[in-house]
Computed example of a mutant assay.
Amino acid sequence: MNSTTQKLSFTVPLSFEAHSIAQELVSEIYNQEKRQQVYLNSLTVYAVNNYLRCMGFETDYSEGDSRNFLAVELMNVADLIVKDIGKLECLPVLAEAEVVEISPEVWEDRIGYVFVELSDSLKSAKILGFTPEAADKIYLSKLESLSDFLVYLTELEVVESVQAETTSNIINFRKWLDGVVDASWQKLDELLKPQQLGLAFKNEVSITRGQKIDLGMHLDKISVALVMKVMSESESEGVDILTQLYPVGEMALPEGIKLIIRDETGEALEVVSREEDNWIQSEFSAESGEKFNITVAYGDSEVMKQFEV
């Protein structure tokens, strides 16, 4: 049930199920103060979970520390995992309270803190608002609204989705060396002309693959082959990498194509094609776990690929 006062709030009935879960968590806790803490925390997490589900967010209600018998006995924890976003901490608020303290043990690994007012009868819980960061004391009058909370979660969801997509697009050379190569990376005899292959292989490597890249639009479009030659070093976990750029369908690259390799610190290696270059290349080494990206650019058009050793 929604109610609107000065700020939007949301009231959740605390059902028999909510109390059964709380009762089970405290069944082997004999310290009365600890029992009360765990019981109220459990009701609070239940309320936030129901609220988020009503708002269209998926949760892992049963997977948090708040549902772990040992964790709740050792810590003051009331966490709720929101799928693909992160972990919230849920704080119970008793009637007439103006300030709530946040235990230092839940200051990390949280995307935010949600405050829930429990009725005296413990039959209902009102979601009051949230704060994205922890502090010793939180004044309830300064909480951010539930409207802002939903916007905040939605923005985090988008960020996590983009990061997950970016991570999934990273090409991992260790997988290449283990024989696992995405089908979009072709063997060179499938990508280049026979007469170009003689130019490509003067150094033997463990695995070589190439991918066609289209630059420009319509009549100005040109196609090039990005070729990666990867060799595992014998005395370390690093690799030697030879990156080459070839024309596709032609024997020479247009003048002015850039091959840019940039590591995580932003340091870059750049090679630019000259008139009638058959190919351009850059050679470097990378350590295990190191990430870098390669950009192929021509005029206003560029394509970037991300890699990891």
Rank of each mutant, 00 (worst) to 15 (best):
V100K: 15
S66P: 12
G216D: 04
E290W: 03
G210K: 01
N68R: 04
M231W: 09
T59G: 05
E270V: 11
V227G: 12
A18M: 14
S145Y: 07
S223P: 04
L192K: 12
E73D: 06
I257P: 04
D148K: 15
E105I: 13
S232H: 07
W185I: 02
G129E: 01
D84E: 12
L140D: 06
K126R: 14
G249I: 05
V77T: 10
L153K: 11
L150R: 13
I257K: 03
V82K: 05
T4L: 06
L88I: 03
S223C: 10
P247E: 09
S27V: 00
E204K: 13
S206P: 07
M1W: 09
R53K: 15
S184V: 14
A297Q: 05
A95R: 15
R209G: 03
L118T: 01
S223N: 13
L197N: 03
S15W: 15
P132R: 11
I207L: 11
L74Q: 13
A125N: 03
I127H: 02
G238C: 13
P247L: 09
F173C: 02
D79H: 06
W185P: 00
D263L: 01
Y30V: 01
Q306V: 08
M304I: 11
G299V: 09
A268C: 07
C90S: 09
T5Y: 14
L197Y: 00
I21W: 12
V82H: 03
S161A: 15
Q186M: 09
L25A: 07
A71Y: 07
W279P: 00
E33G: 04
L143H: 07
V230G: 14
S285D: 03
D182E: 09
S9P: 01
S121A: 06
V93G: 01
A183I: 01
L226Q: 10
T265P: 00
W185Q: 00
D109M: 13
A71C: 04
G256H: 05
G112P: 11
Q196P: 05
S3H: 07
S66L: 06
G249P: 01
K83W: 07
S119T: 07
E96L: 13
S121K: 09
N41C: 06
A134M: 05
A18T: 01
I261G: 02
V180F: 13
V45I: 10
I207Q: 15
L40Q: 08
P194R: 14
L118M: 11
S285K: 09
E275H: 08
T4S: 12
S66A: 15
V230M: 04
L40D: 04
A71W: 05
E108Y: 14
S9M: 06
G129A: 02
K175N: 09
D136V: 03
A268S: 14
F57K: 10
W176G: 04
E160W: 06
S288P: 04
I207E: 15
D60I: 10
K187A: 12
N172M: 03
F284Q: 11
Q244A: 10
L122I: 00
Q211C: 06
D220N: 05
A47L: 10
N50F: 08
I280V: 10
L177A: 01
E17P: 00
N172P: 01
G198A: 14
S282W: 04
Q196D: 11
L259G: 03
M55T: 00
V106H: 09
V158F: 11
